[in-house]
Design a protein around this nucleic acid. Sequence first.
DNA 1: TTAGAAAGCCGTATGCTGAA
DNA 2: TTCAGCATACGGCTTTCTAA
Length: 266
Amino acid sequence: MRRAWVETESEVGVEAMEDLGLKFFLSLRKSYWIGRHMKVTTPRIACLETALAYRRRFAELQQALSHRGVVSPGLLNRLSIADLEDNWHRFSALYIEACCGLGETQNIDASSPKSKEAVAKRLATLVEANSAEREKQLRAWNCRQMLLEERLQRQAARKERAALLRNRRAMSREDRNKARHQKLPSELVKNLVRRWERLQSQRRRREAAVLQQERAKQRAAARVELKQRAAARVELRRCRMEREERWRWLNRPDLTMADLLGQRGL
DNA sequence: TTAGAAAGCCGTATGCTGAA
DNA sequence: TTCAGCATACGGCTTTCTAA
C-alpha cells in the first residue's frame, strides 16, 4: 500500500492526490462474538500510516488467538472462555478507540463523530444478537468433550482388563511350576517308574504289531505256494492221462497203416 | 453525495468427524 | 490409521441500502 501510494503520487502529483481524497477503513470480523457473516468497520481514515498502525494493533490482538499463524477453527478447543472474553474486551476497547479515540484529530474523518457509548452499545447489540449461536457452539463443544472423555475411559478400562488377564495367567503358570517343584522324591521316583513302564508297554505293543504283520505275510505266501503246487499236480495228471490214451490208441488190435501215416492228427 | 452498516461470495488454512 | 468431506475463522472484495 505504501509503495502504491508513493508511486501513484509521483505519477499524478501531490495536488492531484490531495484532490482525490483517498481514505482507508478496516473491515473486521469476529465470528464467535458477532456471527460468521457479520463485520464491523472503522470510520474512514485519511492518513494511510494511521490506518496501517490500527491494522497492526488489530493484527497483534488476533495473533493471540492464532495457532501456527492463522486463527483456525475450534477456538474453544484451544482457548478458555475467559481467554476469549479477554480478547473480545481488548478488541472492543481498540475498536472504540479507532472509532472515537482519535475522532477529534485530523487522521480520522470527523464528518461523523461517534460517542464511545454509542459504539459500545452497538457492539453489545451485535454480541447479544449472536448469543444463541455462541450457546449452540458451546453445547456442541461440551458434547464433543464428553464423548472424548467417555472414549478415553473405555480405552483405559480395556487396558486394565487386559493387564488383569495377563497377571492371572502369569500367576497360574507360576503356581503350576511351583507345584511341580514341591513334589516328594518318592513321588518323583514313582512317576519316573510309571513313565518307564508306560514307554516299555508301548515298545512291546509296537514289536508285537510288527511280528503279526510278518506272520500274515508268511501265511499269504504259503497259500500262494499251495495253489501253485495244486495247479502243477493237475497239469501233471492231465499230461499222464494224455500219454496213456495215446499209448492205448497206438497199441489197439485194429490199428491200420493209414492210422500210422497220420490220418489222425496227434 | 457519501459514510456506515449489512450481507454475500470466493479463497485459504486448518480442525473435526465418520466411513473404509 | 487414513482420508474425504464438512465446518470454522478469517481476509479481501463487492454490492446494496439507509441516513445524514
